[in-house]
Write a protein that binds this DNA or RNA. Structure first.
Lengths: 132, 132
DNA sequence: CTTATAAATGTTATATTATTACATACTGTT
DNA sequence: AACAGTATGTAATAATATAACATTTATAAG
């Protein structure tokens, strides 16, 4: 089970916005959207984002500098993330594939390094964009 | 075989710097280091970086906004990248593991999306940092 | 309830990363 | 020589992110 986190006021405002959004949101677009709610400065946004990422409520899409709500109930998942990204329409979705996550979580190589976390981003064309 | 690319002057300067560097380099650190060679503006750096990434001579470490030289001779590899990143010393190395790359290159899910590219970043502590 | 501590907020300024726009020059064909 | 494609130079600015400091709120312990 995922640990319950009582989100603070700013965290809740920002999480709700991201959660309702269709796609990933960028920090300054978030800022613009929450200014009417009293969040005025970038740092207020980034602090909430940092916390939300930390507790796994959202993920950062590194290649896009954008944030999406976690689609996954597993508490493990914020340490083991995989996304599919359409390079045409920029649609992003979280991949939940048990085989994949097991494979990657158990991955080890000759470096002697123990991996505690990974992030995987797949790129391609989504169904819609492919048929255009 | 990898297609031969004749690097231009700026591309060569910047590739050589990254290639000699121990770890990943950031764009503005590159800029600082090549100013004595006549490269004065960020855009000159970013243009060379873009091209070098495109032809697979370097890779971008997305989570760090930094660039490292490709350690791999395969021409496929710039569409199929995996890195291990030490969260303590920030050492980064490219993983070349045939099983892993085959597994990921062949990965498909129910979304109907055909993936043409992926980037995977593993995080953890390297041997040295673990023993501290 | 009070004290202590951690977490969150507010605010200003600034650092870092990356791109737009436009003019010019080089390179390799035909 | 003319063309097309690629690379360069330069200035300005956009977009992303953090530092520093003061204050407030939440949580837990005595």
């Amino acid at each position: 089970m995922q640990k319950e986190h009582n989100l603070s006021k700013n965290q809740k405002i920002i999480f709700d916005l991201i959660d309702k959004s269709r796609g990933p949101m960028k920090a300054y677009s978030i800022l613009f959207n929450v200014q009417k709610k009293g969040i005025k400065a970038p740092l207020q946004v980034y602090r909430a984002l940092d916390k939300l990422v930390e507790i796994g409520k959202i993920h950062k899409i590194e290649s896009r500098n954008a944030f999406i709500a976690c689609q996954n109930s597993s508490c493990q998942i914020s340490k083991a993330t995989a996304f599919s990204i359409c390079e045409s329409c920029e649609n992003v979705s979280e991949i939940s594939n048990l085989k994949l996550s097991k494979y990657l979580s158990n991955f080890s190589d000759s470096s002697g390094m123990k991996y505690s976390k990974y992030n995987l981003e797949f790129f391609g064309l989504c169904k819609k964009c492919k048929s255009k």
